[in-house]
Amino acid sequence: MKRQVVLLAMLSWAGAAMAAEPPANHRNFVACPIVRDTNTVPCWLAEYEGETYFLTIQTDVSAPVNPPWLGHRVLVEGTVSDEPRICGGIVLKPVALSVMQELDGSCNTMLPAEERYNLAFEPPRPPGPSKGRLAFGDPVTKPRAEEVAASRSFELRYEFDSLVMFRHAQPLQQIFEHARQSNATKVQITGYRAASLLSNGQLMQEDKEIGRRRAEQVADLLRGAGLTALQYEVKWQDETKRAKGVEDAAVRRVQVVVSR
């Protein structure tokens, strides 16, 4: 069912209204990712309209941007930066990457290391063991014991059309800890459905049910972790009309408000 919806949504690009286009310095597109080896960690690239763009390097679980997957296409939503090219690609920064769920066997390009494409900087995390810490900190941390506010809002951001995944363990843990420390009595969960305005003017919309599914899943997970005594208010919204090609990824979210 969901697959059909996604396919329909993707097939509908061509017929979508070309009402607007993202700003010129934005690149929003779907393509096969490309991995290029270097003498340290590999680079992740993608090609769009004859140009190569640098997406990210291999880091570790704690990185704010995680590499895509061969075997799948990737939705790239990025801003062209003025940084020097990396691995031959124009640097998109900031960039949001969403792995498309369906398999695509044509996305299988691995390029060998070449001297001219070696990184001009030391990567936060080498390809082997780390130097004793995660590149960007512990992916799941307990909040410090401090005075707990009566009400606090949390936000979970999602990849396109996706539900909870590894990177949500940390914000979920924070919600969990806060609810316990604050003796919360209720939680309000709002799931959002979004769309992405691609650089070619097409609108890529998420599954029609995704907002509801996101909200209900977060509620189920919090209950499943033991927060069963809270009063849950679960709702969802469709914000596909907000797509402007700038920070569309930020709209794919669940808002959680925990209060006493």
Partner: peptide, 13 residues
Amino acid sequence: TVGLGNPTKRTCS
């Protein structure tokens, strides 16, 4: 699938 990318150049450890 846990943020390392596919493939990832790493080691047994």
